[in-house]
Design a protein around this nucleic acid. Structure first.
Lengths: 198, 198
DNA sequence: ATTTTCTTGTGATTGAAATCATATCGGGTG
DNA sequence: CACCCGATATGATTTCAATCACAAGAAAAT
């Protein structure tokens, strides 16, 4: 859990319900709110001219998102789109800064989150630069597993569609499918009803 | 300038001189210090099994580096190597945290730096995923120019070797050379004595 | 229940960057 | 000054992911 919901509500944060597929904010837009996901699923994506998506992050309940412009005052670095019907809680930027000033412990927790996200980018960037699909996918899945991100609530394994893996790595679906078959043959993962469990 | 040097010295920070090529700390190593570059140049790199380097960042005087593990308590995400003879100033991790607690303004400035670095990773990651060398190089150089990073002190243009660009983008030198010749022919940059000015 | 859409799946072809080879240039060093 | 090394330069070849084409299964929408 990022920031306690009661704390946010006390300061005047408001709930917002978004439908599946709804755009919460757009890349390049200006930012006036701190966002935290209460329930559902939100993906953080860059969409290019041909409509293809690069997934920067898949946000789970309790996590914040869109935090970059809260500090550097630039535009949003990526769009946020609801994967499923979701509830988010929003706090106005100025109140958010007030909160950080009053609660150094929350500010520190925030710095930790930013560090973790930066570390994830370091890892993935290094891996993408190597142009080795098998290593890239393996590193991504291992990282997610180690950080309990995008894990199936029932079986405790990382659960992503191959399309999502493709969109997180810049590889094509076909390449991901073929590469994962390799990993599957080596017994490093389970494919059940088409879905990947790592 | 990141943190005022006098503030650091008052808290007990110490100077350290490193020779060109010297490794300041190694990837995967544990972190006990806040690092800030006083003079010289430091590159922040991942080195793979075959010895090829991926440059995460080229640090200039006044900037901090190696800050990720200060917050998430993991190992260093990359190695720091001095490009030229450099002077760094180091503050013990515990004292650094004490400083942040005492000086919310410094903590906030730090959050801003982290945001900017995270944003840079977002931009580059999205670009690498597209597999378009010309766009990747153009985006990298435009970003650096916009943020006045790695800019020539005399002519105010971004100044990098093509090898460095290759190491920052995961492209091969030959590809960068060929691509930049294109950009040069289009008049978008200047090549002088082999060096690139954008 | 049926249509539509998204995802998986697989083979054939292509294209662009990686790789290999080799040479030259320029800065720094002993 | 001569030497060396890193960076630039360029052509030839290779390789492997992208692309194309097409099919079928699963899930969501109507």
């Amino acid at each position: 859990m990022m920031i306690d919901i009661d704390v946010l509500l006390t300061l005047g944060a408001t709930y917002k319900k978004v439908a599946a597929g709804e755009v919460i904010y757009n890349e390049e837009g200006l930012c006036s709110f701190y966002h935290q996901l209460v329930s559902g699923s939100v993906r953080w994506v860059n969409i290019d001219d041909n409509g293809s998506e690069f997934i920067q992050n898949i946000i789970e309940p309790g996590e914040c998102f869109g935090e970059i412009p809260l500090f550097d005052d630039g535009p949003y670095a990526a769009s946020a789109i609801a994967d499923t019907e979701s509830v988010i809680i929003r706090l106005h930027k100025s109140l958010f800064h007030q909160l950080l000033a009053e609660r150094p412990d929350i500010h520190m927790a925030f710095s930790k989150i930013m560090s973790e996200r930066l570390r994830f980018k370091f890892v993935l960037l290094k891996e993408l630069a190597h142009h080795d699909p098998e290593k890239t996918i393996n590193t991504l899945l291992t990282y997610l597993k180690g950080n309990k991100k995008n894990v199936c609530t029932i079986c405790n394994k990382v659960k992503l569609t191959r399309q999502q893996i493709a969109n997180m790595t810049g590889l094509r679906v076909e390449t991901v499918i073929r590469t994962m078959r390799h990993l599957h043959d080596k017994g490093e993962l389970v494919i059940d009803k088409g879905k990947v469990y790592f």
